[in-house]
Design a protein around this nucleic acid. Structure first.
Lengths: 170, 170
DNA sequence: GAAGATTGATGAATCAATCTTT
DNA sequence: AAAGATTGATTCATCAATCTTC
């Protein structure tokens, strides 16, 4: 299913060629971006594999955990979109997926009849517990990185997220 | 189009809750994975925006550059899949996209009649030059990260890619 | 039989347009 | 008019099955 491994690091090789064509300045950015893209693929594949027994994808898992960790076990769809940083349509699709599996259910918003709430079900809570256990067991697919490595990456990328307007720096 | 910014870092907030539920061990992995996923989204959006004038998406740009940098300006589709780490079907789609835009063309393989070559066109070479200039100008969307930051991220993620079997360490 | 590539179908994500409620 | 959510259409990526050639 997956292609055979190469005998060299394709990103390192690309960096070498890049430098000879366009100089030093843009080589590090190119290599970093390519690394992040590829790492995202690897992590997503590992996570989705670990979540398969629970009939979840990672995006659906994220939505489920947002409900799980919310105070009342329920949130307005719009709020979920803001927290997950996805478009309204995607929230609709995510909740559809969770609802079909019996992990969440839509409810009417008590005061605003335009809005819809998504609420986690008891079954959803069980699944969330088990799925989280599974992901924690594999450290979210981050092997072989150390905690120090991970904290450094998180910190570095945080400054990029701030710059991108992901959230307002306190 | 994009949701309004939050007043706090959603990943930091998730990490806080995570720690109180599942302890320290899995908090750093969770936060790092979420950071990488979100950063990938941000970068992809920045790159696609910069590439829009050239009618390219980032995946198509990557495929085009692979041809651009190849010795003869042409490669077998299978080899492209191995280098880009994507499935054969995706290579077909990518080359379809480049071919429709006149940036590449399919050619018969000289010796193996099963195989197909993709060759960059003169027009494709012009576009590749211009698009690369555009991406270099914005440092591949990596603002505000320093070269030191970028090299550190690339190096750290490289060990993960090796572990994942992306390539064989020499 | 296996490799290389394509086709058709499925699942996920975004965009534009629509509908209801505020 | 604006906010919240949904629908339908488009794009993209992957999977299974197919076809040709080695």
């Amino acid at each position: 299913v997956s292609p055979p491994p190469l005998r060299f690091d394709p990103i390192k090789e690309a960096a070498r060629q890049w430098r000879s064509h366009w100089g030093d300045a843009s080589t590090a950015p190119m290599a970093a971006v390519t690394s992040i893209m590829r790492t995202e693929q690897i992590l997503m594949a590992r996570l989705n594999e670990a979540l398969e027994p629970f009939d979840l994808t990672f995006p659906r898992y994220e939505a489920l955990m947002l409900l799980y960790l919310s105070r009342a076990g329920e949130l307005p769809l719009g709020k979920m979109g803001a927290r997950l940083q996805v478009h309204p349509t995607s929230v609709t699709n995510l909740i559809d997926g969770l609802e079909q599996r019996g992990y969440a259910a839509r409810k009417a918003h008590p005061t605003d009849r335009r809005a819809t709430l998504a609420a986690i079900t008891p079954r959803g809570r069980e699944i969330a517990d088990q799925a989280t256990e599974a992901l924690n067991a594999i450290r979210f697919g981050t092997a072989p990185l150390s905690r120090k490595d991970l904290d450094a990456v998180t910190g570095t990328l945080r400054t990029l997220r701030v710059e991108a307007g992901d959230f307002e720096e306190k």
